[in-house]
Amino acid sequence: MTTLMFILGIVVFAAGLLFSIAWHELGHLSTAKMFGIRVPQYMVGFGPTLWSRNRGETEYGVKAILFGGYIRMIGMFPPGPDGRLEARSTSPWRGMIEDARSAAFEELRPGDEKRLFYTRKPWKRVVVMFAGPFMNLILAAVLFLTVLMGFGIQQQTTTVSSVSQCVISQTENRDDCKKSDPSPRPRPPG
């Protein structure tokens, strides 16, 4: 039974972790779509795709390595200062940024010029980026309310829950009463 409960605990933990990842990414997805940003992918996990389904312009799916998730918004990386993709520099970080920019611009479709992330007002971009952590705060509040209101917390009290039928000496190792054991003193009225 202990092994079964241990395995059940691992399964419940993994399911909860996956739910919290999906919930977090849902925050980003819903606000991005609310502000008119095209989101081609919503994925839970990384690596090879195990399952996916296209709904509208977004592909929803589950990947093989379930330690995270992401949404892909078009226009996450703005073009260079001259409006074009810049030539590759020698810095490894600069090269990664330029690779990400070029990959982001490869998936642009006609009509997407007005649906890019970087074309939104700064406050809208902040809302989209903050929506994921905000969803985590909502989840934490719901979990705490469920535990505290549904199960409660153990508190010390001055209420006596039970009174034994007899007084057993502390040196004796038994749980039942004998006829020779004194009964507890009744409480005086008043």
Rank of each mutant, 00 (worst) to 15 (best):
A131G: 03
M76S: 04
A100L: 11
T119S: 09
D112Y: 11
R88T: 15
P79T: 12
L116Y: 08
G68I: 05
R125H: 04
V39C: 10
L85F: 06
K114W: 08
I65M: 04
S52E: 09
G111L: 12
N54F: 00
T90K: 14
V44T: 11
G80E: 09
F134H: 01
L108A: 09
T119R: 10
V126R: 14
S91E: 09
E59M: 13
P133C: 05
E59K: 14
Y70G: 10
E86H: 03
M34C: 13
K124T: 04
M34T: 13
R72N: 08
Y118N: 03
E107S: 10
R38C: 11
R109M: 12
K33H: 10
L85V: 12
D112A: 10
F117E: 07
G80K: 03
I74W: 11
P78A: 14
A131L: 02
Y60T: 09
Q41H: 12
G69C: 06
L85Y: 06
S102G: 09
P110A: 15
P40A: 13
T58Y: 07
Y42S: 01
V39I: 08
T49P: 01
P40W: 11
K121P: 00
R94E: 14
Y42E: 04
R120L: 14
G83H: 05
E113S: 06
L85A: 15
M76I: 05
P122A: 02
G111V: 03
R72C: 05
T90H: 13
E98T: 10
T49C: 03
G80C: 07
T58G: 02
G75H: 04
I71Q: 10
A87I: 11
I65H: 00
P78S: 13
A87L: 14
F35M: 02
F46I: 00
